[in-house]
Design a binder for these strands. Sequence first.
RNA 1: GCGGGAUUGGUCUAGUGGUUAGGAUACCAGCCCCCCAAGCUGGUGGUCGCGGGUUCGAAUCCCGCAUCCCGCACCA
Length: 486
Amino acid sequence: MNYEQIIRLMLERGFLLPSSEIYADALAGFWDYGPLGVALKNKYVELWRRYLVRRDNMVEIDGCQIMPKSVFVASGHLAGFEDPIVSCTKCNLTLRADRLIQEKTGKIIPERLPNQELDNLISSNDIRCPNCGGNFGNVRRFNMMFKVNVGPSGEEAYLRPETCQSIFVDFPRLFKVMRCKLPVAFAQYGKSFRNEISPRQSLMRLREFYQAEIEVFFNPDKANEFEKFDAVKSEVLRLALDGEKLEEITAAEALEKGYLPNKLIAYYLVILKQFYQYAGLDVKRSRFRKLGDDEKAFYASSAFDFEVETSLGWIELVACNHRGDYDLSGHSKVSKKDMTVLDGDRDVLPNVFELSMGVDRSIYAIIEHSLVVDGERTVLRFKPYLAPIQVGVFPLVTRDGLPEAAKQIYSKIKLNFEAFYDESGSIGRRYRRMDEIGTPFCITVDYQTLEDNTVTIRDRDTMKQDRVKISELEQALQRRLFTYSP
RNA sequence: GCGGGAUUGGUCUAGUGGUUAGGAUACCAGCCCCCCAAGCUGGUGGUCGCGGGUUCGAAUCCCGCAUCCCGCACCA
């Protein structure tokens, strides 16, 4: 299935809704999660906590979405997150001013050049609209951050464009009160906001979106003194170092060959890949792509994108950036707070390696990779522990006391599991409905139930059934649902 | 932002100026009672993205706006 069909399925089944769709002035780039979507997302985030946050003893926080101007002065977003743009006075075509000039003149044009100088370059080189030949207006700045006004005085503040700034500004206190030692990782799941010029493809480019970010703070002199690496050194990574060319190589070899800068980064790339394996992504269709200098974010000294192949092509799920001491030194300068911490007997300003995960995109990718159309059967083969509905409960027929028996089981197990009771239509039809939303197990109450207090558990993927005693049902479900596997 | 296409019940769709907007699917109820969908009967649900205009009369023509898709540009 392609992107469009998948989105239709998500809309139809209550995974996703266009936000404020009843109004004609609904905004592009905003989508709501429906009941199944939020259930899937919550379980995905729980898995993230299990396989990354808890596994690595990370410290999780939940920071505010609105932050004061100073934060973004220090982070560089007020200057660096801003593009010089210019519009044609005739056809309104809008382009990046620096790139336009660079393209026409062949000269390297720094993005930070003042507007006036960019204007001068456009007129002195007689640059006209490539679309209609019209003249360009004056260069202006477009900042992708949403500005908000706080309090009656309208104090200038911004919606955070990335969640990690909360971690950086909280770092000094957190490090102390949580009794941290380097290296230490901080994690946060939450919303970020970017005023995208043209949001497209629903979950791929949202203006309000979820990130799950991990910021690893470490002593740059000790990035190779990293014992945890040994446990994962023989894991295979798929690396795209130079364009599309792909190398499958163990983490240890990648280090030896200098593809990866240090053990710490190698370790986190491995556990990120492992996490996605557990999330049910087809990692054979994934890669870590090394970004060229022209693609990297302004704060990154080296960067890998974790990407997966979908019907939309390769999409970026996680940006893995070596941010150096960019953030802490920036915040230290602007806030005049000391951001150094004690490591051994020495004060160090930690460096940061981040795994910045796009949650919404990940959800999309998992759905696409989980979807199997097998003849007439449409199945979402979610890992059981990610399934929005975990178990369906059905009476085989609607007579002879079977519905009553089934409802009794349902009312009991729904306290511990996401269960769904259904008695409408044929039994096969009910199984298929569950297949379509990825429910891994269905319990059927049949005539034998009335005789010996057993029910069948039907497996979504094999369609086979096991018979279990009602008294052992919850245990049996527990075991099936929470067997984690890559 | 630019160019192109699209916008009719949950979903797909017929309908290009004129009676209560038709169908499929889904859904609901009843029948059937069947362990892998699409059997029978009945039923709910749309005023046609929003606003304005033309016309005696518009889902159907015109304008504006919004959203979605594709291409370009943008994507810290």
